[in-house]
């Protein structure tokens, strides 16, 4: 499996990465080599092996349903670039 220039452009857009036009071809080639490696892995017969969804073998610990966090808005909003009356604000987005 290989990627072309347009697919790289789409993926970059979805990840909000800015990629220069001249870099699209080289990146497509690099990513294609990664995918070729994945293809080689896929050729291994794994019929009786349960898919791994996490490299850590431990099981998840659940948390009791209690409120442990209090209102820390003032502190948490200190690093924010812009706030207004308790809201975070960003340049207007409308879908």
């Amino acid at each position: 499996m290989s990627l072309d220039k347009e697919e790289v452009r789409t993926i970059a857009h979805l990840a909000r990465l800015s990629v220069e036009e001249s870099r699209l071809e080289p990146i497509a080639a690099e990513l294609s080599r990664v995918l070729e490696f994945v293809d080689r892995l896929n050729s291994v017969d794994t019929r009786d092996i349960e898919p791994m969804s996490n490299p850590v073998s431990s099981e998840l610990v659940l948390r009791e349903d209690v409120i442990t966090e209090t209102d820390e808005r003032e502190q948490l909003q200190k690093p924010a670039p812009a706030v207004h009356e308790g809201y975070f604000t960003v340049p207007r987005v409308i879908e």
Partner: peptide, 29 residues
């Protein structure tokens, strides 16, 4: 209907002051 959020210990209640129930986990810090 829970007291706290799915992945954090912040309150899961409707109608509070904006961002008063959003902790570091909810903010994805």
């Amino acid at each position: 209907q829970t007291q706290s959020k799915l992945f954090s210990g912040a309150a899961n209640a409707f109608g509070a002051e904006p961002n008063s129930q959003a902790c570091a986990v909810d903010l994805g810090l």
